[in-house]
């Protein structure tokens, strides 16, 4: 991965970690895989989340991709508002979410252009 992609990736991880902590996660597991300029992130942890909040999260992470502005706006990912996940949603290519028995699992995929 190039430097810019590394920087955006670390901002993405920070935003997701923040989200889990804000929802009272005691333990969060994370896995990060990079191949060339592609990234796969997996997060899992027990959280206090209403079903409506989960639906909102799914909607946030399903934003249409806006790669043209990814470097510029990825800087906003490190502040602590939940709205940040809308920005995260606009940066990623695809997401898969599951919420069973209080355990929230998030899979994200992103390919970085030059």
């Amino acid at each position: 991965m190039h430097k810019r992609a590394e920087h955006i990736t670390s901002n993405m991880i920070r935003a997701l970690t923040q989200f889990y902590l804000e929802h009272h996660a005691k333990e969060v597991k994370m896995q990060l895989q990079t191949v060339d300029n592609s990234l796969k992130v997996w997060f899992q942890g027990q959280v206090n989340l209403e079903e409506s909040e989960f639906e909102k999260l799914k909607e946030s992470l399903a934003q249409p991709n806006t790669t043209d502005i990814e470097y510029y706006y990825s800087e906003l990912l490190d502040s602590s508002d939940s709205a940040d996940l809308m920005i995260l949603g606009a940066l990623i290519d695809r997401s898969e979410l599951a919420f069973d028995d209080g355990i929230l699992t998030i899979d994200l995929w992103k390919h970085f252009n030059k």
Binding site: Y72, Y73, S74, E75, L76, D78, S79, D81
Partner: peptide, 14 residues
């Protein structure tokens, strides 16, 4: 300007 525009976002958090 492009070099500064991203990092400066942190100042006012958007």
């Amino acid at each position: 300007t492009p070099a500064l525009s991203g990092p400066f976002l942190r100042f006012h958090s958007g």
